[in-house]
């Protein structure tokens, strides 16, 4: 017989951390539930304590401080898209979150959940990493910060310790002429998991030369990959065709995918560069339009 599952909906961070660190058993954090409830249904995880974090204000709000956005880990995709200033500042990250499932799912799915669930194909993760987001984590030992790229470690695995919880993500202030974009490939137009995904964030100078870039690809390795060589191919260029080609080649070279039900190795390697080039073009056009 399945053991009983306790359900708690704490109102404060401290209460949440106390619950999570004080329980001897399988604890799970419930944010949007769009992955967790499926895993529970399939019997892959049988928590004995479920902590719903959606009543904690720090986790469910978007705020801005000196041009830097703070994105609560339990903010859902629809909330992001409806926050005009955020969506305008981080269109790539917003698009990535808005690619997660149907609108029904987007009303629930959160960026923190997407990250901690640690699927290599998570759409919002390459966008978060490309954005240079820093996660603020609270645990029994207090509060710490960590780069997003260091949180997911492999399929279904993350680096959080027992009792730890991601509170929010801090995005760097937007420089002039900078923008992000995220593109993924799926077989249908909606509802699929990414076969490959590419998040790009770049900054141009007044002359249109790329001075900063981050390129992150998803679904092509055990976790999202930040490809420095790809960024290097853009930095110092006007992001012309030849730079984009080089960037795409660097992306393909970094892939270490598997063959699975969603795509073949060869396909992923090839299409990752296509998605990266197309995403870069979108980011570039956006950056040129911003001041």
């Amino acid at each position: 017989m399945m053991s009983e599952m306790r359900f708690e909906s704490p109102q404060t961070l401290e209460a949440a951390v106390a619950l999570l660190s004080g329980h001897n058993g399988i604890t799970k954090i419930l944010a949007g539930g769009t992955d967790l409830l499926i895993q529970m249904r399939g019997g892959r995880v049988e928590p004995t304590l479920l902590v719903d974090v959606k009543s904690i204000p720090e986790l469910t709000s978007i705020s801005q401080n000196n041009g830097a956005f703070r994105l609560g880990a339990a903010v859902n995709a629809m909330q992001m898209s409806e926050h005009e200033a955020f969506a305008q500042s981080w269109p790539g990250l917003t698009e990535a979150a808005m690619l997660i499932g149907s609108y029904q799912i987007k009303s629930r799915a959160t960026v923190g959940g997407n990250l901690c669930n640690a699927s290599p194909a998570a759409d919002s993760v390459p966008a978060l990493i490309a954005a240079g987001a820093i996660a603020t984590i609270m645990g029994p030992q207090g509060i710490r910060e960590q780069k997003v790229e260091d949180i997911a470690t492999g399929p279904g695995k993350n680096s959080l310790a027992k009792g730890e919880i991601v509170l929010y993500f801090t995005l760097p202030p937007r420089a002039p002429h900078s923008a992000d974009a995220y593109l993924r490939f799926i077989p249908r137009t909606e509802m699929d998991i990414a076969v490959v995904g590419a998040g790009i964030n770049l900054t141009l100078n007044d002359k249109g030369i790329c001075i900063e870039a981050r390129v992150c690809i998803g679904a092509v390795a055990e976790k999202a990959l930040l490809v420095k060589e790809a960024a290097a191919a853009l930095i110092g260029s006007t992001c012309d065709e030849s730079a984009l080609e080089k960037m795409g080649a660097a992306v393909s070279a970094a892939c270490r995918p598997i063959d699975d039900k969603r795509g073949t190795k060869a396909y992923r390697i090839k299409v990752s560069s296509v998605m990266a080039r197309r995403a870069a073009t979108i980011a570039l056009n956006r950056a040129r339009r911003t001041h």
């Binding site: 077989p187 249908r188 137009t189 909606e190 509802m191 699929d192 998991i193 039900k261 969603r262």
Partner: peptide, 10 residues
């Protein structure tokens, strides 16, 4: 999810 029947936007 992975038995991909057409959706309205396809």
């Amino acid at each position: 999810l992975d038995y991909r029947m057409p959706v309205a936007s396809d």
